[in-house]
């Protein structure tokens, strides 16, 4: 690069505008591709946006902190999005109220299986204690792992990976199992894969999206309640 080019780059790379815009451009491309592929599970826009952006950061030698200066405006919208879920819950309220018992049964069974199976399998592979605690709340949020003494950075990675994995697996898995009920499919996506699973559910069907939103909220509360007890039971 010549000196003026370099000066321009140095200037732009310091403003939030650059990486905010790049995040949106990359997402729009990934989302269009996903729509063109008829929302094929492997065309997941979260998955493709993150590797493309990761590659761009690596190629330009941009540290994550500098990237996040711009991307934080997108990240910030997670809070308002949770509030906005109220609209979809409200519009499906009669369907949700009628499914009260199936939701509670699925919540208890699903949350316990999500936590115990992850810890038990990692344990069988000889993972150390702080890693086992980090994987325990993988379907919900890294916050729980931190409060139990797990590795918070690893927990955050595991939570995001579980989200992307679930969002990709859920459609072929449910089709394979012959489960056609949108309520059950959405509830499973939100329970096992939090907001990324819910995002997938909203792309596929409005009923699935609403039930995924409920499952995500319920499991966040339920896992926070049972994790300390289950982790002690499994590890001690």
């Amino acid at each position: 690069m010549s000196a003026p080019d370099l000066a321009l780059w140095v200037y732009l790379s310091r403003t939030p505008l650059l990486w905010l815009t790049v995040t949106l451009v990359v997402y729009v491309i990934a989302d269009r591709a996903s729509a063109a592929a008829n929302r094929h599970p492997l065309g997941n826009p979260v998955l493709h946006s993150i590797w493309m952006l990761g590659l761009l950061l690596w190629l330009t030698g941009t540290p994550y902190r500098a990237y996040f200066e711009g991307a934080q405006f997108v990240h910030f919208m997670l809070g308002p999005a949770i509030v906005a879920l109220a609209i979809s819950l409200w519009e499906t309220r009669s369907q949700i109220a009628r499914a009260f018992l199936p939701m509670i049964a699925a919540l208890v069974a699903g949350a316990i299986v999500a936590l115990t199976s992850a810890v038990a399998i990692a344990m069988a592979f000889g993972a150390p204690r702080d890693v086992l605690i980090a994987i325990a709340p993988k379907s919900v949020t890294a916050g729980v792992a931190e409060s139990l003494g797990g590795d918070p950075a690893l927990a955050a990675v595991l939570v995001i990976l579980t989200g992307v994995l679930g969002a990709i697996i859920v459609t072929p898995l449910m089709n394979g199992l012959g489960l056609r009920d949108w309520r059950a499919r959405g509830f499973a996506a939100g329970l096992a894969s939090h907001g990324i699973g819910a995002a997938r559910a909203f792309q596929v069907h409005p009923t699935a999206g609403a039930f995924a939103g409920v499952a995500m909220g319920l499991n966040a509360l339920f896992t926070a309640l049972i994790a300390p007890f289950l982790v002690r039971l499994l590890l001690d």
Partner: peptide, 22 residues
């Protein structure tokens, strides 16, 4: 609200990029 929820995927991208680096 539906506009925000339709692009819920986008909102996880910044955190996801952090994962690539870890």
């Amino acid at each position: 609200s539906k506009t925000i929820l339709a692009h819920l995927s986008l909102l996880f991208v910044p955190a996801g990029v952090g994962v690539v680096q870890n």
